Simulated assay, not measured.
Amino acid sequence: MPIKGLKVLPNPVFSELPQNYRLSEEQKSFYWENGYLVIKELIDFTSLYSYKQRFLQICKGIVDSPVMIVKEQALFEKNLKPEEYINKLQEILYDDVFMTYGEHPRLLDVISQFIGDDITAIHSMFINKPPGTARHPPHQDLFYFPIRPVDKIIGSWTAVDHVNKDNGCLYVIPKSHKQDILYPHGDVPEAGKLYHGILNEETLAREHARVSLDMAPGDTVLLHPRLLHGSGPNRTQRHRKAITVHFASSACEYVDVRGSVQERLAADVQAAATRRGLRVSYQDIWKYKSKQVKGVRSNL
């Protein structure tokens, strides 16, 4: 008989998953050829449930967390409850619960097969994407990172809820990473503030070239940082939760982005930091928010 007031977790359907996951040569080849790879049921149900509960605890103000809350401004102005207007939580690497995703042994085993055993987590988000959330235009994750070499950076994105085209699933442009180009990005129509997109979308990311990634909870897609990808608006009446971390080999190095297509973004980020009383370089900002999650930290 359940004890009154005690939370009981649902039966974890994936709880018996092994702590490692060895990729086949076909899977590795697919990633390098196409710039992405979907792995079914990589993350267990119990972990996914804990992430959803942590998000709700933060929404309700039950716990203190060092995460940064990002609101969907149009929804916030409607005086909705937090779960209905919070678009995502950023910088989740130092939250006691969310950090278990970036340190998940099964995920890190996969990541190490692409970038080696010394791994630094460099960027992290829990994405809520409530109903009415705008699209995320086609972009390259590398646009944000002052880190090289490119092939030693990889993103992981795990569905916490079922995701499909109706609620704004990811789409990718296969093989677009092979152009070896970081395209200019900026503000584009029908996208939220700070959701940068490539400026020549109609040429580089035509609708017919987009592959939508329908995913079930626990499914995880790995993304090359140069791959063009984005997501549509959420047109349903339910949320589309996901969790994501970008990883880099700890042997990577910070680079000067002056004179590159990243220069304006770096200047804007530094200016925002200065307004908060912080005088730091763009590279230092990334260094401060990263976290060693496996092996030995060297350059990052």
Rank of each mutant, 00 (worst) to 15 (best):
D284L: 10
Y31E: 01
G102P: 00
I111S: 03
V150E: 09
R238L: 03
L170F: 10
L75M: 03
E41W: 02
G230L: 05
V70M: 07
W286C: 08
K241H: 07
Y94K: 08
M215R: 08
L6Y: 08
V150A: 11
V13C: 09
K294Q: 15
L17D: 06
L42F: 06
E84S: 14
I153A: 04
Y195P: 02
V255T: 08
L204M: 09
P82A: 13
P12W: 01
H208I: 15
A159N: 10
K152Y: 04
E26S: 06
C59Q: 02
P82T: 10
L108S: 01
D117P: 02
Y171P: 04
N34K: 14
E84Y: 07
T203C: 07
T274S: 12
S112G: 13
I62A: 09
T244K: 00
F55C: 14
L37S: 00
I154P: 00
A266F: 03
D214T: 14
D96A: 11
T203R: 14
H136K: 02
S281I: 07
Q19G: 14
Y171I: 09
I243S: 01
I115D: 04
S156H: 03
F145M: 04
Q113S: 11
I119Y: 06
R279L: 08
P12V: 02
N87H: 12
K178A: 10
K129V: 08
F143N: 00
E190V: 05
V13E: 15
I86V: 12
F247R: 00
F45I: 05
R210T: 12
E91P: 01
A242S: 14
M125F: 12
M125S: 09
K291Q: 12
T46Q: 12
N87Y: 12
R106P: 10
A74P: 04
S124F: 08
I181F: 07
D161R: 10
I122Q: 01
T274Q: 15
R206P: 03
K40H: 15
I122T: 09
L170Y: 00
L265I: 05
E91I: 12
S212C: 11
G5L: 13
K28P: 01
S249P: 01
N79R: 12
P130S: 10
P137F: 05
V257T: 07
Q73I: 11
E201Q: 11
R106K: 13
I119E: 08
L23K: 03
P138F: 05
H185I: 11
F114T: 07
L93C: 02
N234D: 03
H162P: 12
L9P: 02
H136V: 10
N34S: 09
R264M: 09
K152F: 04
V13Y: 14
N164W: 06
R135G: 05
L80D: 10
L199M: 12
A159M: 11
